[in-house]
Design a protein around this nucleic acid. Structure first.
Length: 280
DNA sequence: CTACCATCCTGGTTGC
DNA sequence: TGCAACCAGGATGGTA
């Protein structure tokens, strides 16, 4: 569910409430999410001070004062929220909770249980099984048109599928892939390896722009995504093609309705939305 | 190595 | 209203 902007937003919310605070209490309501939780998971969190929080790809990294990092992935349906009223009971899909100093009670809710949590020695983070193969951060300076061209070079898969491949570029999911390709005017069905030169530059810039705008909007909220403080993101109101099948694309001057508006196709088992007039 | 597909799980929506 | 089918923001692991 959550893509880079949502994960970044949640991480910032957690940072505001947790950085520098000690974990007083921790509880796991079940032994596993997508994978088994580490042995003695909750016990190992209790008493730790949270030194800082960060993000790598779609993972939230919580650095603890014992040299370990708490790794969190929200999967498709995971959310982390501070509970305003401490009397509120944990629900069916609340799987993990921690209580930090200053009365901050945080719950991890994940109906589909595709989420992941692990404890990793901070010094070994880059070698962790789930992190070691990850590609470039799209908002970093190491990601420009030429870098993108190099990553896509020689690939015969569609550019849409390549954007979702976390081994190449991290953080982009189904929504922002569609939005970035639309802004760059690139047909999602094009072979990745054909995106070169000016097109690669347009696409790299579109990716950065859409991710930055989405972060500024607090991410996109649909279904159960909310920020750590319970607020909704509002970037879903700025989608230009995603989830707009048959409707006009936003902000492109093609007369979309003459051709039936935004098209929806299946790529790799997932929906892709695009404007056939603008995206070549 | 690349590419494609099924799979994990639950809940909301759609269509008969 | 009931019920079945289908769909969903992710990512892995297997197969070809």
């Amino acid at each position: 569910m959550p893509e880079l902007p949502e994960v970044e937003t949640v991480m910032r919310g957690l940072k505001a409430g947790l950085a520098g605070r000690r974990i007083r209490r921790a509880r796991a309501y079940r032994p596993d999410l997508r994978f088994p939780l580490p042995q003695d998971f909750a016990e190992r969190l209790v008493g730790r001070r949270i030194l800082g929080l960060g993000r790598r790809a779609k993972y939230i990294l919580v650095d603890l004062d014992d040299g370990w990092t708490w790794l969190i992935h929200l999967g498709m349906s995971g959310s982390l929220r501070f509970v305003a009223d401490r009397r509120e009971k944990a629900g069916k899909h609340d799987h993990v909770e921690i209580e930090a100093e200053a009365g901050k009670l945080l719950r991890f809710n994940d109906p589909r249980r595709f989420g992941i949590m692990d404890l990793v020695p901070t010094s070994d983070l880059a070698r962790h099984k789930l992190l070691k193969g990850l590609g470039v951060e799209p908002l970093s300076r190491g990601f420009r048109g030429q870098d993108l061209e190099n990553l896509l070079g020689g690939r015969k898969t569609s550019v849409k599928a390549a954007l979702l491949d976390q081994r190449l570029i991290v953080g982009i999911g189904n929504i922002y892939a569609a939005e970035a390709l639309f802004r760059a005017g690139i047909d999602p069905r094009r072979k990745a390896g054909t995106i070169r030169g000016e097109a690669a530059q347009r696409l790299a810039r579109a990716i950065k722009a859409v991710l930055r705008e989405a972060i500024a909007a607090g991410g996109s909220s649909l279904r159960n995504y909310v920020q750590a403080d319970g607020e909704l993101g509002y970037f879903q109101h700025r989608w230009r093609v995603y989830d707009r099948e048959g409707q006009a694309c936003i902000g492109c001057d093609c007369d979309a309705m003459k051709t039936g508006g935004v098209k929806r196709i299946q790529q790799g088992g997932r929906s892709t939305f695009y404007c056939p007039r603008r995206q070549k």
